[in-house]
Amino acid sequence: MSERRNNKRPRHDNRRDEKPEKSAADSAAQDVGLLASKNPYMPMFLNFRAELDEHHDRRERVIKASRDVTAASKKMIFSLQRCRQLSAPLPPSVLSEVTNLHTIIQTQLLTISHDLSSGNTFRYRQITGGLQELIEALCFRHYLETGSLLTYTAAQKMIPEGIELTISDYVPGVFDFVGEVMRFAITMVALGGGEVEKVLKDLRGIRQGLEEFEEPGYKWYVGARDADKKIAVMRECVEKVEKAVAGKIIRGAEMPEGWVPDLTEVVEGGEGSIRGGTGGV
């Protein structure tokens, strides 16, 4: 302890502050000092320090990658929201953007696959944020292309080897995916699109499936802290589409061709212009 303090003092006298990190030689000299101290536990603790530093570095890398994956996945979702057609190949412009982003994500995940290897996926669960957002994007893309829900097994195969996609990554991703489908459907209604009733049916199907997770024992897999909120938001999303479709049928009947229901609020959300957070309302 005292060695450390003594080490620092002359450095502060130097007017030009050097890097806060100690140089290797510096810290080696300090370690020798600590080892020479009469404290019998010092060698063991110096060893622990090295191990813990390594652990924290790995953790930091995973957190960073998770953030990057989240950001790229969000961009992917924005691009996908520009699609207007269901069960059809993506428009070329969207496809190339999405493909690029997916490559970026794969690279990000590969850089940390070593940190997450041999069971460490569960040690550094900080990756879950990124994976959840990625699942949201992948589900949405899959839905736009095929009109069906991406299965857990299929999703697992889309994650680079060495990184495990757990149920508690997949399920929250699917929950948030409902929000994207809602935006897509509302836009469709606003533009007078025809397939919205099929989307509504699908949303109801997804809702029915996701409601299973309300069971007390299952909730933990939806979110350790925000399961209730996620479930509530998912329901709201489905109901919004139900209302939009009903509104279109009721008022649309007396309106001239090309009339668009007043849904400015939600539509703005649907365009993604004021969208914040994941699975927002």
Partner: peptide, 21 residues
């Protein structure tokens, strides 16, 4: 107009949760 959402997808997941529990 049919729903293309296969409920088995959820059943597979809950089955795994059951095993975990």
């Amino acid at each position: 107009v049919y729903s293309a959402i296969d409920q088995d997808i959820f059943a597979t997941v809950t089955e795994q949760i059951e095993q975990d529990l």
